[in-house]
Amino acid sequence: MAKKILFINQEISPYVPDSSLSLMGRNLPQFMQEKGYEIRTFMPKWGNINERRGQLHEVIRLSGMNLIIDDTDHPLIIKVASIQSSRIQVYFIDNDDYFTKRLMASDEKGEEYSDNGERAIFFARGVLETVKKLRWVPDIIHCQGWMSSVVPLYVKTAYHEEPSFANTKVVTSLFPKSLNKSIGDNFKRSLEFRDVKADLLGKYSDNFDFDELIKLAIDNSDGVIEVGDDVSADLADYAMRQNIPLLKNPGTDFVDSYEKFYNQICED
């Protein structure tokens, strides 16, 4: 039976401008689908996405849940579209406050949003709740981009007894640094959900920044992949010190290396 891979992406081309992250977000699911894997793909519905051009439409049966973050209700909206050239279906996590009315990590003036941490939490929980509703059980969850960095923690703690994720392996890709400021002074408090309590987060700085966020992802992943030559050596070394399998940057011809790594992770 073909393995099932859930790709949780920060960016996917053509919905946002081309970058190493958005191109990988588009190409990797396509390549794995062509190899016979069953895939699902998620990303945030950033405010700079043209819904009409991308032919996004809301999935009513999946929308409507409220996610409580830091004692505040936030409605979850799920939209879907297809990349025609690759026949890849993309699910979008949306919310008026966190995504629809805003750009990506930074506003029109280039200032990073002070609540980027809360946005990542909402995105993570929105994806996992939606996958549960789909009654789909991934063998592997592959997280790409800082926006997906909360997912590994929740899979291994808050959702570890859910049938959809009980036996799922998590892979995190390391990309070059893309956040410069902290992601909110209430991030730890906002993370608390089910089994995720403050004492689980004691090893991390109260001032969560990009590096702390990626360390959180690494600590809860079963494997880590370097993407590109300019990934932080400190973060790659951190993964190795935690004895987490690390795939060094395989370059442009990466598909076979990724597949081999997936199989290695699933066998461990």
Score class of each variant (00 low, 15 high):
Ala2Tyr: 11
Ile5Asn: 06
Ile5Arg: 01
Leu6Trp: 05
Ser13Met: 12
Pro14Gln: 02
Val16Lys: 03
Ser19Gly: 15
Ser20His: 10
Ser22Thr: 13
Ser22Gln: 09
Ser22Met: 10
Asn27Lys: 10
Pro29Ala: 06
Phe31Met: 14
Gln33Met: 12
Glu34Asp: 09
Tyr37Gln: 11
Glu38Trp: 00
Met43Thr: 15
Trp46Thr: 05
Gly47Leu: 04
Gly47Asn: 02
Asn50Ser: 15
Leu56Val: 14
Leu56Gly: 11
Glu58Arg: 14
Val59Ser: 03
Arg61Thr: 15
Ser63Ala: 07
Gly64Ile: 05
Met65Cys: 08
Leu67Gln: 02
Leu67Lys: 01
Asp71Ile: 02
Asp73Gly: 00
Asp73Val: 06
Ile77Gly: 01
Ala81Asn: 09
Ala81Arg: 04
Ile83Phe: 13
Ser86Ala: 11
Arg87Gln: 15
Arg87Ala: 12
Gln89Trp: 08
Tyr91Val: 12
Tyr91Trp: 11
Ile93Pro: 03
Ile93Ala: 00
Ile93Ser: 03
Tyr98Cys: 00
Thr100Phe: 07
Ser106Val: 13
Gly110Tyr: 11
Glu111Trp: 09
Ser114Asp: 14
Asp115Thr: 10
Asn116Val: 13
Arg119Ala: 10
Arg125Cys: 06
Val127Asp: 04
Val127Phe: 00
Glu129Asp: 14
Lys132Ile: 14
Lys133Gly: 11
Leu134Val: 14
Arg135His: 14
Trp136Glu: 12
Val137Glu: 10
Pro138Asp: 03
Pro138Ala: 08
Ile140Gly: 04
Ile140Phe: 05
Ile140Asn: 02
Ile141Phe: 01
Ile141Glu: 00
Cys143Arg: 00
Ser149Gln: 09
Val151Thr: 05
Ala158Gln: 08
Pro163Asn: 07
Pro163Leu: 06
Ser164Asp: 14
Thr168Trp: 07
Thr168Lys: 07
Lys169Asp: 05
Val170Trp: 08
Val170Arg: 03
Val171Ile: 15
Thr172Val: 10
Thr172Ala: 04
Ser173Cys: 11
Ser173Leu: 09
Phe175Leu: 13
Ser178Lys: 01
Ser178Leu: 09
Ser182Asn: 15
Asn186Trp: 03
Arg189Glu: 11
Leu201Ser: 06
Lys203Pro: 09
Lys203Ser: 15
Tyr204Leu: 00
Ser205His: 07
Asp206Phe: 03
Asp206Ala: 05
Phe210Met: 02
Leu213Trp: 04
Leu213His: 02
Ile214Gln: 08
Lys215Glu: 11
Leu216Met: 13
Leu216Ala: 04
Gly223Val: 03
Ile225Pro: 02
Glu226Phe: 02
Asp230Trp: 08
Ala233Phe: 11
Ala233Met: 11
Asp234Lys: 09
Asp234Gln: 10
Leu235Met: 02
Arg241Glu: 10
Leu246Trp: 02
Phe254Leu: 11
Ser257Thr: 08
Tyr258Gly: 06
Tyr258Asn: 06
Phe261Leu: 01
Phe261Pro: 00
Asn263Cys: 02
Ile265Pro: 02
Cys266Gly: 00
